[in-house]
Amino acid sequence: MPVVGSVAAKPAGGSLEVNDVCHEYVRAGDKTAVIALGPVSLQVSAGEFLCLLGPSGCGKSTLLMIIAGLLPPTRGTVAVDAVPVTGPSRERGVVFQDYALLPWKTVRSNVALGPRLAGASRREANQIADEYLELVGMPQAGDRYPHELSGGMRQRAAVARTLAAKPKVLLMDEPFAAVDAQTRGVLQEELVGIWARTAQTVVFVTHSVEEAALLADRVVVMSSAPGRVQEEFPVTLPHQVRFSRESAPRVAEVAASLLASVRVAQPRQSRQVASWSG
């Protein structure tokens, strides 16, 4: 992919701090409060690529929505560059699993939305949009509508849209779970390339140990019911070499140790099922 000067020149991402965040909900049946998440504390430094890994239902997506400001925590605080989070804002961009592109806008208008909302003129916004579409490798697709694109292309457009709003922290909620395995591999490698060039802070939610091993600087494994931090794994393998064939065994080694941790993190019932099935 070509390097786009003005995009690469953007300042590094912000730092993120999550302090004792809890999420509770009231169960419909007996009206008792159920703790779904927490307390969870995390520190993510500027420019770091953090993966939140855990079994489904461990609250990792809930945590991401709380960081995004889309869900208020029952207790605890979230801060970006030491400024407390009070609601959704453009400093915490989210890439959703099902793309969430606006179907009535062209790809370019979708990507231009962030700059437009920030007060850029239509012309400026479109120019920025085209830069970011080039960054994600789809410079020709600006005039097309989301429904005309494949799943992989839609997710690229969604990444471009989020980046074009120039967030301090990029939040990704299982973004590649809905695309086929081959495309996923390509998207993962592209994402690492973009991350390396933009020095963006990334929090990436996934349930795939391989994905976490390929992408992260650091993996936080979460346990379920309630969702808590179970274990942290720094991944020291340099990003440049992770996608090469020679590194495959080392990536697999990381994935294996992550898998062992996730197995422990799973609630007892599903752990039994897992051991039966292999």
């Binding site: 400001g69 609601g87 804002s89 989210v94 959703f96 962030g114 920030a118 989020t162 709003a165």
Partner: peptide, 12 residues
């Protein structure tokens, strides 16, 4: 879809 609204909110 809720995500459409949330996407716009997180874009500012």
């Amino acid at each position: 879809p809720k995500a459409s609204v949330q996407a716009a909110q997180t874009l500012g």
